Amino acid sequence: MNAAPADQIRLLDVQALDTRLTQLAHKRKNLPEHEEIQTLEGDLTQLRDLLVAAQTEESDTAREQTKAEQDVDQVRQRASRDQKRLDSGLVTNPKDLESLQSEIASLAKRQGDLEDVVLEVMERRESAQERAGELARRVESVQAKTEDATGRRDAALETIDTEVATVKKEREIVAGSVPAELLKLYEKIREQQGGVGAARLYQRRCEGCQLELNITEMNEVRAAAAEEVVRCENCRRILVRTPESGL
Rank of each mutant, 00 (worst) to 15 (best):
L97E: 12
E98A: 15
S99P: 00
S99W: 10
S99K: 13
L100S: 07
Q101N: 14
Q101H: 12
Q101P: 01
S102M: 09
E103W: 08
A105H: 11
S106I: 01
L107N: 14
A108K: 15
R110W: 03
Q111E: 15
G112K: 12
D113G: 09
E115C: 04
V117C: 00
L119M: 10
L119I: 11
E120Q: 14
E123S: 13
E123C: 01
R124W: 03
R125G: 15
E126D: 14
S127T: 13
S127K: 14
A128H: 06
A128I: 04
Q129W: 05
Q129Y: 07
E130K: 13
G133M: 08
E134V: 09
E134Y: 12
L135D: 08
L135N: 11
L135P: 02
R137K: 14
R137G: 05
V139W: 07
V139T: 07
V139N: 03
E140R: 11
S141E: 15
S141K: 13
A144H: 12
A144C: 03
A144T: 08
K145V: 00
K145C: 01
K145R: 15
T146D: 09
E147F: 07
E147G: 03
D148C: 01
A149C: 08
A149W: 06
T150Y: 06
T150Q: 15
G151A: 10
G151W: 06
R153T: 02
D154W: 06
L157H: 04
L157S: 04
I160K: 04
I160C: 04
D161E: 13
T162H: 12
E163R: 10
E163S: 06
E163D: 09
V164M: 03
V164A: 02
V164P: 00
A165I: 02
A165M: 04
A165N: 06
V167W: 01
K168I: 01
K169P: 00
E170Q: 10
R171N: 03
R171Y: 00
R171M: 02
E172H: 03
E172I: 01
I173W: 02
A175Y: 02
S177F: 01
E181D: 15
L183E: 02
L183C: 07
K184P: 00
K184H: 13
L185S: 12
Y186S: 03
K188G: 03
I189L: 14
I189Q: 08
E191L: 11
Q192S: 14
Q193H: 15
Q193F: 05
G194A: 08
G194F: 11
G195D: 04
G195I: 01
G195S: 04
V196H: 08
G197I: 06
A198E: 04
A198T: 05
A198Q: 06
A198Y: 06
A198H: 08
A198L: 09
A199L: 09
R200M: 15
L201I: 05
L201R: 11
R205C: 13
R205G: 09
